[in-house]
Design a protein around this nucleic acid. Structure first.
Lengths: 106, 106
DNA sequence: TTGATTTATCAAGATTCGTTGATATATGTT
DNA sequence: AACATATATCAACGAATCTTGATAAATCAA
């Protein structure tokens, strides 16, 4: 039974990178309460519009969120699949340790 | 019952940032098998010594790993507390959504 | 069509990040 | 002491990131 391994460090890094910014975490914190448009986020997070747009693009690029247009509004929401992926990733890091070979290193 | 919130986006970002690099994920993948010294990592990851040192410092700075000196070797290992913290963080992102107010946005 | 609104994109600049090679520090060996 | 080994730190550089303000694109209203 081989240990779980981070399948693709590059993909994992992309996902974690999307989470590695305070503004983006605040966005996700809002979105987890439900779908939300940009103008609403602008209000709640006190952030400039182009700044939000930039971070939303990063989150979307990593697959953390999805969007939907309705008239002139764009609604963003958390992508449940990405959350599952994240879970797997963290699980793979928590993998129970097995004993190392007895001999010391080098 | 209020929703769980990412307590400190700055701290969360620091933790996720530590994970947002392929080299660092590979290091963690090795360390989760047990304590390991730098020279061993150098071999296994085919990475230059100063490069590894840099990434180990980032991981340690974020509290993801701990170190222990033994003679001239430094042994690194995963910090279980950080893994728990990570778990909480991901849980807070997965928080069940509650209904948004009925009215559309803006 | 003209004008307003919402969001995305772009350009510029400041900051942070990651890599490399050289050097410093600590420890152990002879 | 002199030397070897393991690791950390530093300086320099290019690359990536984030912010801001300006402009473009899309949609809707009059």
């Amino acid at each position: 039974m081989k240990g779980i391994t981070v399948r693709s460090p590059a993909r994992a890094a992309e996902l974690f990178h999307a989470l590695a910014d305070p503004t983006r975490l605040e966005i996700l914190d809002e979105l987890k309460e439900g779908e939300c448009c940009v103008c609403e986020l602008t209000d709640r997070l006190q952030a400039g519009q182009s700044r939000l747009s930039f971070h939303l693009k990063v989150l979307k690029g990593a697959g953390m969120i999805v969007d939907r247009r309705e008239g002139r509004w764009m609604y963003y929401s958390v992508n449940a699949e990405a959350l599952a992926e994240l879970d797997d990733l963290v699980d793979s890091l928590k993998q129970a340790k097995r004993a190392r070979r007895a001999t010391g290193c080098c």
